[in-house]
Design a protein around this nucleic acid. Structure first.
Length: 217
DNA sequence: CCCCAGGCCGCGC
DNA sequence: GCGCGGCATGGG
């Protein structure tokens, strides 16, 4: 297996040069300043809403929550589930997601608990799977868990010829990268951007910035 | 009309 | 442990 640390870092550096810093996770700091709420709660809420859903639709749901001044754990908890469903409807799976928002808001309140909650405890919350847990730990908790998603799996399979389970791939990234929070955040964001721009289902290899590093021409 | 999007759960095996 | 159906909106 061609899994050298330097090759993975070279992919990272090349994507960073090609696309620039992504600065994930996107949050509306102005909103939270005005409301006196914690921006980390928007990250957790967004992580639930974006499950198998285009970010554009998530933004509509987040906008609805903002206009209702409910983009916070307290807002989620005090809103009747029917009303919550209505607000998040554009993000799809709105019945499931309304329940999941209630669950995470309850268990992660106060949001400062993400600094010390275990990954296993997060996974015990109904509606929080591995990717959501790692996204919360990394982007809201600033802790070194590499996030694997469908885009990441596709790129790793093509570039390195490696397939694996979620945990297998997460270990592979964490074993082959320096334990650097900023790097983890930026790399995951860059992989998603790359999957959207070039490494689509039908890849555009001819203009791909890392085609010289890829096993699949 | 089709397929897809920053997954997860519950089930059968 | 793995594979599958269900969940739902909005865009291409």
């Amino acid at each position: 297996m061609r899994s050298s640390r330097s090759e993975l870092l070279e992919v990272y550096e090349t994507l960073l040069n090609a696309y620039g810093e992504q600065n994930w996770w996107p949050v509306d700091l102005r909103y939270h300043r005005e409301m006196g709420s914690d921006p980390r709660e928007e990250i957790v809420i967004g992580a639930i809403l974006t499950q198998n859903t285009a970010w554009k639709n998530v933004e509509r749901a987040l906008d609805n929550l903002k206009r209702a001044k409910l983009l916070s754990f307290e807002g989620i908890l005090k809103t009747p589930v029917g009303k919550l469903q209505e607000l998040i409807r554009p993000s799809g799976y709105y019945r499931q997601k309304a329940e999941r928002l209630k669950n995470v808001a309850e268990f992660l309140n106060p949001v400062s608990s993400v600094e010390k909650i275990s990954r296993e405890e997060l996974l015990d919350i109904k509606g929080v799977g591995r990717e959501t847990a790692d996204a919360v730990l990394l982007y809201a908790g600033n802790r070194p868990f590499f996030v694997i998603d469908a885009y990441t799996k596709r790129i790793v399979k093509r570039v390195f010829g490696i397939e694996g389970s979620y945990e297998g791939l997460r270990r592979w990234f964490e074993d082959n990268l320096p334990k650097d929070i900023k790097l983890y955040k930026e790399f995951h964001a860059l992989l998603d951007e790359h999957a959207k721009r070039f490494c689509r289902k039908k890849p555009a290899c001819d203009k791909c910035p890392i085609n010289h590093l890829c096993t699949q021409p």
